[in-house]
Simulated assay, not measured.
Amino acid sequence: MSAIATARAAWGADVPDWIMALAHECDRTSQNQTAKRIGRSASFVSTLVRNCYSAGLEGAEEVVRGALMSENISCPVLGEIGKHVCLKWRRRAGSFENVNTQHVMMYRACNRCPRCIGGDHG
């Protein structure tokens, strides 16, 4: 069964567009290649397509929209970046790392950003 057919069977008539984009990419390449492209595991991709993902979908949606659907946001520091890149930096902003100047700059910026309000680091 194709990933698109699996998604339609699991999600019903209201399959989100980003799930369909994920399923389409799985059918176009493979589940493993899709997982690598979005920076997640193959089991993560499978649970999303099969509508079995137990955690909140917001972070997963941002990763797919940014990596596969080329959706961007305006970052006050980096300019236009993919949503998946924003999520990566927000997650890193959960703890301070004095690795290099960019990490320090992004730690400060992300912790002041409205997308990260309330300690929601993705």
Results as ranks from 00 to 15, higher is better:
50 R>L: 05
47 T>D: 09
38 I>K: 12
49 V>S: 03
39 G>Y: 12
32 N>G: 13
47 T>R: 13
24 H>D: 09
39 G>K: 14
49 V>C: 04
49 V>D: 01
27 D>W: 04
21 A>I: 11
28 R>P: 03
53 Y>V: 03
55 A>F: 14
49 V>G: 03
26 C>R: 02
30 S>K: 05
21 A>E: 10
32 N>D: 09
28 R>A: 04
50 R>Q: 14
54 S>R: 15
50 R>N: 08
47 T>H: 08
19 I>V: 14
23 A>H: 03
28 R>V: 03
34 T>E: 04
29 T>G: 05
55 A>M: 07
49 V>R: 03
45 V>H: 00
38 I>L: 06
46 S>E: 11
29 T>Q: 09
54 S>M: 12
25 E>T: 07
48 L>K: 00
34 T>P: 00
48 L>C: 09
36 K>Y: 07
54 S>K: 12
25 E>Y: 09
27 D>T: 02
35 A>D: 00
41 S>W: 01
53 Y>C: 05
55 A>N: 11
27 D>G: 01
42 A>S: 14
51 N>Y: 10
46 S>I: 05
20 M>L: 15
26 C>Y: 01
42 A>D: 03
36 K>L: 15
33 Q>D: 07
50 R>M: 11
36 K>Q: 14
37 R>E: 13
40 R>M: 13
36 K>R: 15
28 R>W: 01
48 L>V: 08
22 L>K: 09
50 R>W: 04
21 A>D: 13
46 S>W: 07
31 Q>G: 02
40 R>H: 12
43 S>I: 06
26 C>Q: 01
49 V>L: 04
29 T>W: 06
33 Q>G: 10
30 S>T: 08
39 G>W: 10
32 N>Q: 13
52 C>G: 15
19 I>D: 00
52 C>M: 14
25 E>A: 06
55 A>R: 12
33 Q>T: 08
21 A>W: 11
19 I>S: 00
25 E>L: 04
37 R>G: 08
19 I>L: 00
